[in-house]
Amino acid sequence: MEKKNKRSFRERVIGALLQFFILLFTIGTVYPVLWVFKIAFGSQKGLSLSLSLFPAQPTLENFNHILFEKPFFIWLLNSLIVAAATSVIGIFLAATAGYAFSRFRFPGRTAGLLSFLITQMFPGTLMMIPLYLIVNWLGLLDNLAGLVLVYSTSAIPFSIWMLKGYFDTIPKELEESALIDGASRTLIFYKIILPLAKPALAVTALFSFMTAWNEYILAATFMNRELSYTLPVALRNFVGQFAQDWGLFAAGAILVSIPIVALFFILQKYLVSGLTAGSVKG
């Protein structure tokens, strides 16, 4: 009680220092992002040597260019389709599997869980050639479906582990009660488990979405026609081997980042609980 009213001098100094430190750190963190804005709204094609965050002659030219002189909306649509499909498929597969891993004891359970963990250690380079061959064999090169397939499976292991951890924290009496009440397993899954696992589902969906939205190596390998590019591939080409158009890149970067950052912030209240619920309990 006393402490609240009369904060000691030392504590106040420490508090101020911490505040200052965090402020500085946050500025440092946000600076690169603001820098992108400056380049995007600037007129030069290249970078500019100044610390100032305001462009010398602000212009919307870069945005104009990327939005209307490039097939930006097609790329956006590609990315959206891929990312949305990836998260829907990924979530569906991960939720069902995660639920089984969490609730049932069946032969092969531990092995399955472990194998999902181990896949995280597979180096991507090793997988690329075979994946290319498989996608080619399926006739899905230059096809969004190929990317969706590959992305959703690559997002699954992490999602399964996360969801399983979350499902573990839901008391099993809820299900048993529903079972006695006459609900089927499937109904319990949809009516009881999924609603309760919303935070984890949201986070899983977010991560799957991000995986698909941000990936560019596989996309660059699988997609060869300009019109089937996803946004990362297209953007990467602005500052790739053949071009150094930083202004265009920055404008594109902003456009690409806005949806995903927005999504991230909307879902961030779930982030902490969804991500850690499973691992903290024990």
Partner: peptide
């Protein structure tokens, strides 16, 4: 999915 697109490629 994992077997076809992760394990087999691996």
């Amino acid at each position: 999915g994992m077997i076809a697109l992760v394990l087999l490629p691996f």
